[in-house]
Every structure is written in structure tokens, then in C-alpha cells.
Computed example of a mutant assay.
Amino acid sequence: MKSRASHLLLAMLLLTPSAQANLTIHPMRTSVGAEKAAVIRVYSQSTQPQYVQASLRRIVDPAGGGEHEVEVPASQADIALTPSKFALAGGGNRLVRVIPLHGVEHETAYRIYFEGVRAPQDGAVETPADRAQASIGVSLVWGALVNVLPANGSVRLELRGHTLRNTGTLRVGITSVADCDAAGTCVAHDVSRSLYPGASLQLPVTVDPGHTLQLRYRLTRDGYREHLERLKPLSPE
């Protein structure tokens, strides 16, 4: 998996590298489905009240070479956050719900960012937290990865030469691959990569005729449960 996808904690220090995070979140990764919402809890690490804002971005080409994030208007997003802005008491915590809005055809990845911001200016009085943030000049941003699952997801993988392609509708988190001969002797190769629907992966081995590729992988919906599948190479297109 690419570093952007595997490192979910993002800290941006604007002026000083010695600042401490004034909030944390849990979990750092979750998923929602057609009938399954999720929750993320935001914890205050400060004795002062804070005002927190959550923002949403869609991940394009997740875990791929062209991975990047784009802002998504609320009207076009597959999920909604409630609340997206809230006050957080010193030492307190707040639950944010991640709600699926409509179904998706393929597993999709989003990242939700949480950051401390200034309180609304419509008649609000500056709080100690506002003054502290202004004096420190630091903004720490936490990012949580959220996968949106299709209602009837499927796993389909094709092997042609040393190219593995995900033709299904679910992300496949590959944990290992092995080249196995007809006698069942397998030679393992190190591969650790998330393969999203429509993506391809160049394997470190070409499976010879009569051999099979043994894949061990995990699915978002199954957590740490590991699946095992053997693939026969298809003829080159």
C-alpha cells in the first residue's frame, strides 16, 4: 500500500515542531455500507475548550501511483458527517457519525480531516482556546480513512503474465503471493498492497503454465480475517 494510504495520521506544523496535538481521533480507519453507518470519536487533549471542524475529501486512485485527494461538494459525496462542526470541552470527547447517503458500485475511499478552528464570528466572544491557538500559531490535522462499500460487493481477480488486475467491486488487501507448481510446492514473494477495483498490480513473478498463483488477502468488510485464493494465469490479451 502506498504511504499516503497506510499513514492515516497527518500532522501539519505551521510554525513550530514542538507543539503537542490538542485533539485525537479513534478509529483511524473505518467503513460504511448501504445499511451500515460508522462513528468516529474525537477526544480533547487540552484543558481549554475548542471548536472542531471536519472536512471530507475523496481519494482518487487509492493506493495507486496517481493517488491524490479532491474536495467533494456535499451534494456529490457518498457519505455525510454529523456534526461537521462542534464545540469540544476541555478533556471531553464528541461522537461524529459517518452516514452513507446512497449506494456505490465499487468500493470507494474517502478521508475525513479533523482540525481545531476559530469559533464562529457571529456574535461569539473569543475564547481562551482561540487566544491560545493564535499565540502558538500551530494547526494539527488528523485524517481518518473511510471506505464506502457496495451493497453486493464481489471479489474477482485476473492474472495475465505478471499483471494482477482487480475486476471485482471490492478492495483486496494483498498480504502475500506465492508461485505454486503442480506438486503443491510454493515459492512465496513479498507483496503488501491494496488493490482497488479497476486497478492493476505488477507482480514480482510470472506464473508459468501449469502453475498457480496463491493469494492471501483481506477485505475491508471482514477486518483482519484472511482469505486464500489460487489463480491460474489467463492467456495474454
Rank of each mutant, 00 (worst) to 15 (best):
A178L: 09
L9P: 00
S235W: 03
V148C: 11
R111C: 08
P62G: 03
V70D: 12
R4M: 13
E229S: 14
T167F: 07
S154I: 12
N22E: 14
D181H: 04
V125F: 08
G91Q: 08
A188V: 03
C186Y: 06
A87F: 12
T206R: 13
E69G: 09
S135D: 14
E226D: 03
A21S: 12
R225N: 09
A38H: 07
G65D: 14
A199G: 04
G137T: 06
V42I: 04
W142D: 15
Q202I: 09
P100W: 06
G64D: 10
L81R: 05
G92D: 12
P209S: 06
Y110G: 00
Q53M: 14
F86D: 01
E35F: 11
C180T: 07
L234C: 03
G210L: 03
R230S: 13
H227D: 07
A11L: 15
V117W: 03
V141Y: 06
A63E: 12
D190G: 01
N147W: 01
S44W: 02
R111I: 05
A178H: 09
R230Y: 10
E69R: 14
L145N: 02
Q50I: 07
L159I: 00
T220S: 11
A124C: 11
R160H: 05
H7E: 14
L56W: 06
V32L: 10
S31G: 08
A151C: 03
I40L: 06
D222N: 05
L201I: 06
S44F: 02
G64I: 01
T47Q: 13
